[in-house]
């Protein structure tokens, strides 16, 4: 029995544009072990989100093509049918995406999102779902959780939306959590909060996580190992401490230099920091 939950080999993602074909992910391979946190770092447009979407089979087949192999727990996810995906998405692999507010249906309350997910995966009734929802919201330290259940996403702050999204992913008790830019759209204070929360959840729940971010501070704080992406390729990978301390690749060095002024261990640094 292998200890890797996710194993990706030779993943390529192509998008069709008006002017030609864009290779957004180019021959990417990595593995994620149980209880491990793997960080994927790289500048905007380097293909990080595309990896997350390809992994969950969420890319639109009319304007994109995916190649390579993606295994979850030794089972291939490529070519899975709709029913097969239903057992994986959400239930085994949870995900939070870049802009948390847009991830909620504007015509539904936060609570209804939980209800749908719990009913479909666990067959829970409304009452039971509400109890679970409250627990999940409290686990992510949502303030005024009871009120939030009846609120719409547009009534919450960005940080609260991100907490709700996290709770929604965790309520299904997945083995792996993919967090795509979990802090990107938040203000500085909320960024620190969410980073701390993720670190706590990780030790609490023993989740394997794929943390995707251009924020090296966040990655440095959370990830055991890191993969640095540039133009769709992984240019360097290794234990986070080692990569940050002795980068071998020129691009990694450049990236690190861009956020040197703030400590790489602090969650408050980012690629946007000025010298």
């Amino acid at each position: 029995m292998s200890i890797s939950v996710i194993e990706i080999r030779g993943l390529c993602v192509d998008y069709a544009l008006a002017s030609g074909v864009l290779r957004a992910v180019d021959d990417v391979s990595f593995t994620l072990s149980r209880q491990e946190v793997l960080g994927i770092a790289g500048e905007s447009g380097s293909g990080k989100s595309s990896i997350a979407l390809a992994l969950l089979g969420l890319l639109d087949s009319t304007d994109s093509r995916t190649r390579g192999s993606v295994d979850f727990d030794g089972q291939s996810l490529i070519g899975l049918d709709e029913a097969g995906w239903r057992g994986i998405r959400g239930r085994r692999i949870g995900a939070v995406f870049q802009s948390p507010r847009e991830c909620f249906n504007p015509t539904m309350t936060i609570g209804q999102h939980f209800e749908d997910a719990l009913r479909e995966h666990f067959g829970l009734s409304r009452q039971l779902a509400t109890t679970r929802t409250l627990e999940a919201l409290e686990r992510v330290r949502m303030p005024r959780a009871r009120e939030v259940i009846g609120s719409y996403a547009f009534e919450l702050s960005g940080g609260m939306c991100q907490r709700a999204a996290l709770a929604l992913a965790l309520v299904l008790e997945p083995a792996v959590l993919i967090a795509d830019e979990p802090t990107a759209s938040l203000d500085l204070l909320a960024q620190v909060d969410i980073a701390r929360l993720l670190a706590e959840l990780r030790t609490e729940l023993g989740l394997a996580m794929l943390v995707i971010s251009h924020d090296l501070g966040l990655i440095g704080r959370l990830a055991d190992r890191v993969a640095i992406m540039h133009k769709g390729r992984i240019v360097e990978t290794g234990p986070t401490v080692q990569v940050f301390r002795e980068p071998t690749d020129a691009y990694t060095r450049e990236l690190l230099a861009a956020c040197r002024p703030a400590s790489t261990r602090s969650s408050m640094s980012g690629t946007g920091a000025t010298a």
């Binding site: 979407l53 969420l58 239903r86 994986i88 995900a95 847009e102 991830c103 249906n105 749908d116």
Partner: peptide, 16 residues
């Protein structure tokens, strides 16, 4: 839209 993608990532049935 983002929320449809997110809902699909939660493994909801097509009907829902």
């Amino acid at each position: 839209a983002g929320f449809v993608r997110a809902a699909r990532a939660r493994g909801l049935s097509r009907r829902t």
